[in-house]
């Protein structure tokens, strides 16, 4: 039981890392990794939303779509659920902790467009995860996303001072770096 969940976590964090192995959520990965501080904020917000959205979409599917025979509407339904969760989180955070709200800032609404969030929700259905498994899978995906985002941000801060040839400056060298990192993460293959 415990081993199953730890395997699920390790699989989502390292072996099937959503960014570097499954190539989901690349937009925030490239867009928000210019500074370590903002990357930290983004990863905290994403972790919270991803875990919650993964659980909510699982409930939506099993208690709303499936009984009504509307399984084919899951993509649209999940987008709606994710948007609601993000909006809800934003409202709660703004009222309860203005400081955290300021730290997260614009990144909170941006998470709606993070394809990793939708990806996790859909993969949970494909893999027949139950509620608890969905929760763990979502959390693992979020931790994996946060891990590589934060590490990548620290590396990009160093790259800004590197003597990169002009055609490769900025996003280009970022993509090359992400590719090399993806190669490195292939070493985890077979771990679970």
């Amino acid at each position: 039981m415990l081993a199953d969940y730890s395997i699920l976590l390790i699989s989502a964090i390292l072996v099937n890392n959503f960014v570097l192995v499954q190539f989901l959520g690349l937009c925030p990965f490239m867009g928000v990794s210019n500074k370590l501080e903002t990357a930290m904020g983004m990863s905290m917000a994403t972790t919270f939303v991803l875990t919650l959205a993964s659980a909510c979409s699982n409930l939506t599917y099993h208690f709303l779509l499936q009984p009504l025979g509307l399984g084919y509407l899951r993509t649209i339904a999940f987008i709606l659920v994710i948007a609601v969760v993000v909006q809800f989180t934003e409202m709660v955070v703004r009222k309860s902790s203005p400081l955290l709200y300021r730290v997260l800032g614009v990144y909170l609404p941006l998470i709606t467009t993070n394809c990793a969030v939708l990806g996790v929700a859909l993969l949970n259905i494909n893999k027949d995860h139950n509620f608890l498994q969905s929760l763990f899978y979502g959390f693992g995906a979020a931790v994996g996303f946060s891990l590589v985002l934060v590490l990548f941000a620290a590396m990009r801060e160093r790259l800004t001072v590197a003597d990169v040839p002009t055609p490769f400056k900025g996003a280009a060298i970022g993509m090359v770096t992400a590719g090399l990192m993806s190669l490195a993460f292939m070493g985890f293959a077979g771990l679970v």
């Binding site: 370590l36 934060v150 590490l151 990548f152 620290a154 590396m155 801060e157 160093r158 090399l180 990192m181 190669l183 490195a184 993460f185 292939m186 070493g187 985890f188 293959a189 077979g190 771990l191």
Partner: peptide, 23 residues
């Protein structure tokens, strides 16, 4: 893992983490 030796992978993964550790 799947690969018999792991020095290259381990080093590459930690190279990736080195700026963060430095920070």
């Amino acid at each position: 893992g799947n690969y018999p030796d792991a020095v290259a992978f381990a080093v590459l993964i930690m190279n990736f983490a080195a700026p963060f550790i430095d920070h």
